[in-house]
Design a protein around this nucleic acid. Structure first.
Lengths: 138, 138
DNA sequence: CATTGTTCTGCAACCTGGTTGCAATGCTGG
DNA sequence: CCAGCATTGCAACCAGGTTGCAGAACAATG
């Protein structure tokens, strides 16, 4: 996504589009998969990890990104939900144990288990672990 | 589970039943829910965390326990699978964000998403986060 | 344009969970 | 009993995540 568009996207979510924030948003938009703090740090190269952490916290508070816990830390992806309150952009994720990347499984809806009485569910995390097609060759 | 039974259980899995290992196995059997390394350390009180770590690693290698990543670290539970190879004891887990405990959702089968071509799945982790019934009162 | 208060940022320090190296101890088989 | 391997506790380490702080950037106001 172009710098301009990312800047607008931030403003639409009530986030002031500082240069660093635009860089983080661009990195997330450009990646086809969720990125961890350190992946973002390496990709961008010019921003301190504490700032990336605070930027992602801000993004999350404004419903711009999802946090995904894939057993290898936390990764973030742009939330494509039509309505960030209802968070209808849920899907499973696949963590490759070889290349240690996390992919979105968008081919299928996130299957919802039956929740017993009394539990209040705030978020879902469905992680599959194994070997991705790229690493599975040969 | 009694000391005697735990000891047998270890031997059935090809694990030498040292006193410490029996303590860890008992703690896991006695708890109705998966426990983290530090929960085990606190519950048992007499065993060093590095030893608990190595004990759990051994248990896992012998198919005695599952590791569950619930976004709050790793927790372990006795694997009740009939056949540890096929690992048919899969179920979702619920992490309470208030008391920070993890519960098993055994009321329902773990729903399986459709996996795209080429991915080799080794394990599944389905975590729901929210507030458990005990913390949800009042 | 200068001033002031808030926001953003980088750096360094910290914390916690997980992991490893090592030396001492305990156990097992000859 | 002895040699050799398994088990253990301790201390150190590591990485990801988090916080405190002080300076830089910014927006608003007179």
């Amino acid at each position: 996504m172009a710098t301009e568009n990312c800047s607008n996207m931030l403003e639409e979510h009530g986030i002031r589009p500082t240069p660093n924030r635009v860089l983080v948003a661009q990195a997330l938009c450009h990646a086809a998969r969720p990125l961890s703090m350190s992946e973002l740090e390496n990709t961008i190269g010019s921003i301190d990890k504490s700032n990336i952490f605070r930027t992602l916290t801000t993004f999350r508070q404004h419903g711009l990104v999802h946090a995904i816990e894939d057993g290898d830390g936390v990764r973030y992806e742009i939330c494509h939900s039509h309505d960030c309150e209802s968070d209808d952009d849920l899907h499973a994720h696949f963590f490759c144990e070889v290349c240690r990347k996390t992919y979105c499984i968008t081919s299928t809806e996130l299957p919802q288990p039956t929740i017993p009485q009394g539990y209040k569910v705030n978020s879902l995390n469905y992680i599959l672990k194994g070997v991705c097609p790229a690493c599975n060759k040969g």
